[in-house]
């Protein structure tokens, strides 16, 4: 059992070449199993309360398709760019990996910017807040928790990229990048349900 973390060419997947890497990979996946239930509880609460507007603005009055579409495309694309990053990681190409992760971060940042714009828009133009109604509470909590996950993901990625910028890829940091990528895809999965269940269904009914 060697604890040398340098990268040799015969290593196929640097993210899973060490025990620590395998543990991290499994641990993150299991955590996502728990996150599934966490978000399901938020979704369920939202579905239960989405018509409880207490005389305030309803989902049809609030939501607009264009903004949500742009946000969706941004986040979906960031998912693909992180796949590219991992592709380069498996080819041991650190520079290209950092580049693609950098693009991922920018796309995520763009998504976040639009989300902040969206929330301020609702608050200033519609006086629709967290406290307006049960619908308001449920909406901001569900979408806000997703946004919080994006913030956390971006901080995580930034820390990783800055910390390792000069050190290059190793068996010590490859698992960290890889677990981040899986986490980032999961954020995208949650968003797919948010744009479908919250926004699109909110526009229909």
């Amino acid at each position: 059992m060697s604890h040398d973390h340098s990268l040799s060419p015969e290593i196929h997947d640097p993210a899973k070449a060490t025990h620590e890497g395998k543990h991290k990979y499994l641990g993150l996946w299991f955590f996502l199993g728990g996150e599934t239930v966490l978000f399901a509880s938020f979704f369920a609460t939202y579905l239960a309360l989405r018509n409880s507007t207490a005389g305030g603005p309803s989902s049809q009055e609030l939501f607009g398709l264009e903004l949500v579409f742009v946000m969706t495309i941004l986040l979906l694309t960031s998912s693909l760019t992180s796949v590219y990053a991992i592709y380069h990681m498996k080819n041991h190409d650190f520079k290209k990996m950092q580049l693609w992760f950098g693009i991922t971060a920018l796309l995520g940042l763009g998504f976040l910017g639009f989300e902040i714009y969206e929330f301020t828009h609702y608050i200033t133009d519609y006086s629709f807040t967290f406290r307006s109604s049960a619908f308001g509470s449920a909406f901001y909590t569900l979408v806000g928790f997703h946004g919080g996950h994006v913030v956390f993901g971006l901080s995580w990625l930034t820390a990783l990229m800055v910390r390792n910028a000069k050190r290059g890829l190793s068996l010590y940091n490859a698992p960290k990048y890889n677990t981040f990528a899986i986490y980032w895809h999961f954020i995208d999965v949650v968003w797919v349900f948010i744009f479908t269940v919250v926004y699109l269904m909110g526009m229909v009914s």
Partner: peptide, 13 residues
Amino acid sequence: LIYGGIWIAAVTV
């Protein structure tokens, strides 16, 4: 485990 989580998620919703 993911399917387990999805199952409980589905029941909750």
